[in-house]
Simulated assay, not measured.
Amino acid sequence: MSTPFRYTQPPSPKSATGRVAEVHAQIAADFGIDRPATFMVLSSAPELLVPAWALMRESLIAGPGSRTGKELAALGVSLSNNCPFCVDAHTVLLHATGDHALAERLARGDDPESEEHTRVLDWGLASRAPGAALRPYPFPEEHAPAYLGTVLTFHFINRVASALLSEQLMPGGVQRFRAVRSLAGRALGRTVRREAEPGASLPLLDTLGPGPDWALGSPVGPAYAALRAAARTGAELLDPDERALVHHALRDWDGEHPSAVLRGFPTRRERPGARLALLAALAPYRITDEDVAAWHMPWHNDEQLVRLVAYGAFAAVDRIESALALPAAQEATP
């Protein structure tokens, strides 16, 4: 039986215990999707699964602001990152919000009819480029932690999905049919429209750091800090020279997609780990069977592959996040 997983065999949620079992229970209750592949693929590395879920929950699901707006921002991110899996997922979730006409316009490749919706979608699209002009926000200032948390969540999830999942959201690609998208969205409608309690995922985290300035006072901050700390541990899988190579490449990255010939990327033979991490950061859809095979030694396992991909993915998120402007109130502080 085919699965959406390209290079790993994640453990079944039925075997989960402790915090991981609690995460799967929260996902089913608050996301409404049983065993979503985007989180299943992270379950080989529970230290990543828990904060990744917390960040998505506290921003997209429980954070302030319109769910339609945040889905539009996430869709913009997914389009900017060339992630068909996530583009289709957010189209279905827009159906779940009740915005069926909007979902179908976007599925056809048309622009939203509403200028407000267009601004939010374009804002998400622009967020791939570090230092892009994201101000003024196309939403109220007080909703910024939730919207920023959402776009940064999906800059991470897009990359993990493109690297480790197939492009098909549903078996046989049936999400291409309008009736299937609509029915799937309607099935999720009650959960998506239900108000979720902010902060409910934070007790699952090992530590509660304050997080970045743009999320101070919001549950999004500790969740972001926890995912950042967990993702950075993947650096242990690279030697110092490889880490420096990834760091320097991301330092100079301006959001552009690499050329087809991947100039400047390490070769599979010389530095397969650095190549995988850098591809995960900049072009995860370019990761091939040969790239994974070149890195995969007998002592490597699914957890290490997920951690290496997550390290590269979050290196790009770090680059984007570090270039964000502070909220206006903080900019005015002497």
Score class of each variant (00 low, 15 high):
257 H>C: 07
271 R>G: 09
303 E>P: 01
210 P>N: 12
234 G>M: 06
156 F>W: 07
260 A>Q: 11
153 T>Q: 02
149 G>P: 12
19 R>K: 15
81 N>S: 08
105 R>V: 05
216 L>R: 05
187 A>K: 11
259 S>H: 13
298 P>I: 05
241 D>E: 15
223 A>K: 02
119 R>E: 13
3 T>Q: 14
198 P>M: 00
189 G>E: 11
175 Q>P: 01
231 A>W: 02
71 E>F: 11
126 A>T: 04
278 L>W: 00
5 F>C: 07
212 P>R: 09
265 F>W: 05
51 P>C: 12
69 G>E: 08
82 N>R: 14
20 V>S: 15
168 Q>W: 00
284 P>A: 08
93 L>Y: 05
211 G>W: 01
181 R>A: 03
182 S>D: 13
238 L>E: 13
236 E>K: 01
65 G>W: 06
170 M>E: 09
84 P>V: 02
44 S>E: 14
94 L>E: 06
158 N>E: 04
208 L>K: 03
301 N>A: 09
185 G>Q: 02
167 E>A: 13
261 V>K: 10
74 A>P: 03
115 E>P: 04
296 H>N: 13
55 L>I: 12
152 L>C: 13
304 Q>L: 10
252 D>K: 12
144 A>G: 05
287 I>V: 15
187 A>N: 12
123 W>L: 09
280 A>P: 11
106 L>H: 08
285 Y>P: 01
124 G>M: 07
129 A>R: 15
273 G>N: 10
167 E>I: 05
239 D>F: 04
160 V>G: 03
149 G>R: 06
225 A>Y: 01
242 E>H: 00
134 L>S: 08
195 E>D: 14
29 A>Q: 09
7 Y>D: 08
231 A>G: 12
301 N>M: 00
332 A>D: 13
204 L>G: 01
229 A>R: 04
150 T>P: 10
158 N>A: 03
66 S>Y: 03
140 P>M: 11
255 G>T: 12
202 L>P: 05
153 T>F: 09
140 P>V: 12
201 S>Y: 00
176 R>L: 03
276 L>T: 04
333 T>E: 14
139 F>S: 12
30 D>K: 01
101 A>T: 14
308 L>D: 06
41 V>I: 15
76 G>K: 09
174 V>Y: 05
198 P>I: 00
99 D>T: 10
89 A>E: 09
185 G>L: 08
71 E>M: 09
28 A>F: 00
179 A>K: 11
84 P>C: 01
107 A>K: 05
156 F>Y: 14
9 Q>D: 13
198 P>N: 02
294 A>P: 01
6 R>F: 01
133 A>I: 11
6 R>L: 14
113 E>Y: 00
10 P>I: 02
197 E>T: 04
224 Y>H: 14
329 A>E: 14
235 A>E: 15
138 P>K: 03
237 L>K: 05
291 D>A: 03
187 A>P: 03
56 M>C: 11
50 V>G: 04
277 A>H: 11
236 E>R: 07
66 S>E: 06
209 G>R: 05
319 R>D: 08
249 A>M: 07
100 H>N: 06
174 V>A: 07
164 L>T: 10
26 Q>N: 04
101 A>G: 12
47 E>C: 10
107 A>C: 07
121 L>N: 04
182 S>A: 08
